[in-house]
Write a protein that binds this DNA or RNA. Structure first.
Length: 422
DNA sequence: AGGTTCTGCGATTCCACAGTAGTAG
DNA sequence: AACTACTACTGTGGAATCGCAGAAC
C-alpha cells in the first residue's frame, strides 16, 4: 500500500478497499469492483492523504485533507489549536458510483486541490453507473453509504439519527478518537479536544437511553454475535424503521445486547463522572488509541460490518482494553472469541451514576427482561442450516417427545396444528 | 475441611425420511 | 459410455437424558 495504485502501479492511489486491503486509483477501483456482484459490495473509502496507507475516516475542513484515525489523532488530538478544526465524516461507498454520486458523498473531493489533480480524479467526471441495481446498495442518502457510516460508528448514533431524526451533516469538532473507531457520529457537536472522551465512546453510561440494558447483567450474559448478522444489507432492517424503538431492540436477542453495548458510545458526554472514577484507565485508553490504530489494521477497525470494539474489561482487574480487530468476513464465532463479550458481561459499571431520567418503568423493564430471557432460552448457537429443504421438512414433521415419528403414527406434537393425535 | 445433595446448564442422543453419493449390473 | 437400480449415508428439530461444575448444607 502506498502512494501508487496497488493495481495498475501507475496512477496515484486515491481510495482504500478494506476487503482487498488495497489502495487503488479511481480508475482501477472502478474496474476492479465492477467485476462481479461480490466485488461490488466491497466497502471503500478515501485514502488518508497523510500516511497514504490507511483508510481515511475524516476530512479536516481547515486543512482540506482526508485523514485516517491515526493521523487525525496525531494531528488533532495533541494540539489544542488543531483540535478545534472542523472535521467531516468520510463515508464509505460500495458499488460503482458515478462522479456526481461520489461528489455527493464526498462533496470536497472534486474541489479539493490536493486530490483533484491526478488523471484519476479527472476520470471521476467520466464515470457513470453501469449497474443501476447497485444504486440501492450504496446511495448516499439512506442506503449503504449512510448505513456504512452508521455501521462504522456507534449504534447510539444510529439511534440518534433514527429516533430523533437529526440533521445528517457530518461535521463535528474534536479529536476523531472521540468518535470511537469508525466513521459515524452524525452531527454530534462534541467538546473541543476532550481527550478524556477519547475513551468514552465505548464506555457505557446508562444515563441516556435503555436503562434496562445495564441494569440486568443477564443482558450481556451470553452475547452472541452470531445472531447479529451485520451485513450491510441488513442494516436497514436492523436499524431502520422497524427497530427505532428501544423496546423493539429487546426483541432481537443478540441485537439488543449489541445495542446495549453501543449505547456506550452515544453516552460519552454524560459520562464525565465515569471519567473521573476511571481516570487512570481512560488515560491508558488515550495512550493506546493511536497505537491501536497501527497495531490493529484500520481496515478491520472501521469495517462496516464489524466495528471495532473498545473494551473496558473491569473483570480482569485492569483496563482490559482490546479491539475486536475483526474483518467484515468474520463470523459470529469470531465475535465470541473477542473481548467484546467480556465487555458485555460487565453489566453496569460500579462507577456509573444512577439513571434518574430513565424512561423505562420498572414494570416495562421487567417485561423486557422476561422477553429477553425467553429469547435467550430459545436461542440457537452456531446453527447453520445447510439444507433448507430438510429443515422445511423437519419443521413440519410430527413428533413424539421430540422424536420424529412415522407418518401415520400417533404423535404428541404437530408443528403445523400444535395438536395431539391421542 | 471434607463429603453429600441440589441446581443449573451445555452437550448428546434419538427419531423418520428426503435427498445425495457411490457402486454394481 | 450412458442408464437404471440399489445401498449407505447425511441432515433436519424438539424433547429427553447425561454429565459436569458450582453452590448449599
Amino acid at each position: 500500500m502506498g502512494y501508487i495504485c496497488d493495481f495498475c502501479g501507475e496512477q496515484r492511489s486515491m481510495v482504500y478497499c478494506r476487503s482487498d486491503a488495497a489502495c487503488l486509483c479511481l480508475s482501477c477501483d472502478r474496474n476492479v469492483h465492477s467485476a462481479n456482484a461480490l466485488s461490488k459490495r466491497h466497502s471503500r473509502t478515501l485514502l488518508c492523504e497523510r500516511c497514504n496507507s490507511q483508510p481515511a475516516l475524516v476530512r479536516c475542513v481547515e486543512e482540506r485533507v482526508s485523514l485516517c484515525q491515526n493521523c487525525d489523532w496525531m494531528g488533532h488530538g495533541t494540539s489544542s489549536s488543531a483540535s478545534t478544526h472542523k472535521r467531516q465524516t468520510i463515508n464509505c461507498y460500495s458499488g460503482c458510483p458515478s462522479a456526481a454520486e461520489l461528489s455527493s458523498i464526498w462533496s470536497f473531493v472534486l474541489d479539493a486541490p490536493s486530490v483533484g489533480e491526478s488523471a484519476c480524479e479527472q476520470e471521476l467526471s467520466l464515470m457513470s453507473i453501469t449497474d443501476n441495481s447497485m444504486k440501492n446498495s450504496w446511495g448516499p442518502n439512506e442506503d449503504t453509504v449512510s448505513q456504512n457510516a452508521s455501521a462504522g460508528g456507534s449504534v447510539g448514533d444510529v439511534e440518534t439519527s433514527n429516533m430523533h431524526d437529526v440533521d445528517k451533516s457530518s461535521v463535528w469538532v474534536g479529536t476523531s478518537s472521540t468518535r470511537g473507531l469508525g466513521p459515524a457520529p452524525q452531527n454530534l457537536e462534541r467538546p473541543t479536544g476532550s481527550a478524556n472522551n477519547a475513551a468514552l465512546p465505548k464506555l457505557y453510561c446508562p444515563a441516556t437511553k435503555g436503562p434496562a440494558f445495564c441494569e440486568d447483567d443477564d443482558f450481556y450474559e451470553d452475547f452472541n454475535m452470531d445472531e447479529v448478522d451485520l451485513n450491510i444489507e441488513n442494516y436497514e432492517e436492523l436499524f431502520g424503521v422497524t427497530l427505532n424503538h428501544s423496546e423493539e431492540l429487546f426483541e432481537n436477542g443478540g441485537i439488543d445486547s449489541l445495542f446495549g453495548t453501543k449505547e456506550m458510545s452515544a453516552a460519552d458526554s454524560n459520562c464525565q463522572g465515569a471519567v473521573a472514577a476511571e481516570g487512570s484507565s481512560v488515560g491508558l485508553v488515550n495512550a493506546m488509541q493511536p497505537a491501536c490504530s497501527n497495531a490493529a489494521s484500520a481496515d478491520s477497525m472501521m469495517s462496516t460490518k464489524t466495528e471495532p470494539i473498545l473494551c473496558f474489561n473491569t473483570k480482569q482487574g485492569h483496563s482490559g482494553l482490546s479491539f475486536s480487530g475483526l474483518t467484515g468476513e468474520s463470523n459470529g464465532g469470531d465475535y465470541q472469541d473477542c473481548d467484546a463479550s467480556s465487555m458485555l458481561l460487565m453489566g453496569e459499571p460500579p462507577w456509573c451514576p444512577p439513571c434518574p431520567e430513565a424512561s423505562f418503568t420498572s414494570a416495562s423493564r421487567s417485561k423486557a427482561v422476561m422477553r429477553y430471557k425467553e429469547k435467550k432460552k430459545t436461542r440457537k448457537f452456531d446453527k447453520r442450516v445447510r439444507y433448507a429443504s430438510r429443515k422445511a421438512r423437519a419443521d413440519v414433521r410430527r413428533r413424539v417427545k421430540g422424536r420424529f415419528v412415522k407418518a401415520g403414527d400417533a404423535y404428541d406434537y404437530d408443528p403445523l396444528s400444535q395438536t395431539r393425535s391421542y
